[in-house]
């Protein structure tokens, strides 16, 4: 039986693992950290990849294992296919950092995306895929800036 204190310690340690792509943000803020659970006599960290073929998964796994070890615990990492990752999992404070530091907007589920720089909702699509598969490129006619949009890849979402 794994003590609750150990689970909490691991959770605190791995929550602060930086995302390889947005090093100002951690995996908890981006909604990649799903849960930390007791798995028989060991501790397992469940992560939700943003896309199935994300090439950063191995790096994130290594960083999570290292962070847990630094807190005195060995863990295994499991990547979950379900629930699917969606942009709704990104925290509010992370959204502000993404908008300010990276000009990245989040497309809400079934909602309207607004420009992270000027707030205009008149964004025009430019490229379905941006620097990564989870981001498209749009253009803001109001402030005349290119904008990256983190979007959902769930069924039926645009």
């Amino acid at each position: 039986m794994v003590a609750k204190a150990a689970i909490d310690a691991v959770r605190a340690a791995v929550a602060s693992v930086a995302d390889p792509e947005y090093p100002d943000l951690n995996i908890q803020q981006l909604g990649i950290l799903e849960d930390v659970v007791a798995d028989r006599s060991s501790i397992r960290v469940d992560l939700v990849p943003t896309i199935m073929g994300c090439p950063a998964l191995d790096v994130i796994e290594q960083d999570v294992v290292a962070a847990a070890q630094a807190s005195g615990h060995d863990v295994t990492v499991r990547f979950c296919m379900s629930p699917p990752w969606t942009p709704d999992r990104i925290t509010d404070d992370a959204r502000k950092i993404l908008a300010r530091e990276y000009s990245v907007a989040i497309r809400p589920r079934n909602g309207v995306t607004s420009c992270p720089l000027c707030g205009s909702t008149a964004l025009q699509p430019r490229s379905d895929v941006g620097p990564t598969a989870c981001r498209s490129v749009e253009w803001c006619p109001n402030c005349r800036n290119p904008v990256e949009v983190v979007r959902s890849r769930e069924m039926g979402q645009k």
Partner: peptide
């Protein structure tokens, strides 16, 4: 970019 992303998805 699109083809690269699709390649990545298929490998995933």
């Amino acid at each position: 970019l699109a083809f690269t992303s699709i390649a990545q998805d298929e490998l995933g």
